[in-house]
Design a protein around this nucleic acid. Structure first.
Length: 256
DNA sequence: ATGACTGAGCATCTCAGA
């Protein structure tokens, strides 16, 4: 089984990239983030022509996530359960497919909106941890994929790509991320590539791509039984070198 | 030493991204 995640930075701008990528890579499931549109504007027909059915959790202008599946699936949640007042922003989609619970997330960046914006990020992470704990308690095999907006360690970003107070790497951000992983989840990329320099994002500015100055912020976290089935976990760097690319590349995991 | 890109929207600027 092949499962992938990709922050496309507007699905309408990236429609042809995504379709070509689906046809080439043939994942069973692809989670999208930052689709930046509502469901009626989502180019569902394009992806249906490639054999994929979509579940779209959309929002005008900002955020927005979707699941594209070529295998049968059911949608179980369209928002992260357990946020105090629900979530007004489109950042979470949870499905069941192939006997697995699969979650696609766009975790808040946390650098905008001042203290409240950062508090929202931490609250969102706490609710995600609670959801993961619930699934572990129920002994469900599951994976959480998406744009986490977290550089887990200093090895996960290029020197000077972020300031020390950036919401992607602040100590409280990392502490929340660790408390999620330490429930018993496996970071798929790091499990298979413990010492490699691996980025999933390169800023559009300042020649970040040609200088290979990037971040590792798109992750796949696996429950224990899925971790045992892990075969590969790979960012598709080639996508960053195409014409008018997203600033993120797809991350693909293969499970036995 | 400095500047620097992309996308969406009641748009010729602002917000957000990271």
């Amino acid at each position: 089984m092949k499962i992938a995640t990709w922050n496309v930075n507007s699905v309408r701008q990236r429609e042809t990239h995504v379709r070509a990528w689906l046809e080439r890579v043939q994942p069973d499931v692809l989670f999208l983030q930052e689709i930046k549109c509502e469901a009626p504007q989502f180019p569902a027909m394009t992806f249906e022509a490639a054999g994929y059915r979509a579940e779209v959790v959309g929002q005008k202008s900002y955020n927005g996530v979707a699941a594209l599946c070529r295998i049968p699936f059911t949608t179980t949640h369209r928002a992260l359960p357990g946020l105090p007042e629900g979530d007004a922003q489109a950042r979470y989609v949870e499905i069941e497919a192939g006997g697995l619970t699969l979650i696609g997330i766009y975790l808040p960046n946390g650098n905008s909106g001042g203290d409240a914006g950062y508090a929202y990020k931490l609250a969102w992470m706490a609710a995600l941890r609670a959801r993961a704990a619930e699934l572990l308690e129920a002994d469900k095999p599951f994976a959480i994929l998406g744009d986490f907006n977290v550089c887990p360690t200093d090895a996960d970003y290029s020197p000077a790509a972020l300031g020390p107070q950036d919401a992607l790497c602040r100590p409280a951000t990392r502490a929340e991320y660790r408390s999620l992983v330490w429930l018993g989840l496996t970071d798929a990329i790091r499990a298979l590539h413990p010492d490699e320099r691996i980025w999933t994002f390169w800023d559009y500015q300042a020649g970040a791509w040609p200088r290979d100055s990037g971040l590792r912020i798109d992750h796949a976290l696996l429950s224990p039984s899925l971790a045992e089935a892990l075969i590969s976990a790979t960012p598709d760097r080639d996508e960053r070198g195409r014409e008018q690319p997203s600033d993120h590349v797809p991350v693909v995991i293969e499970l036995a």
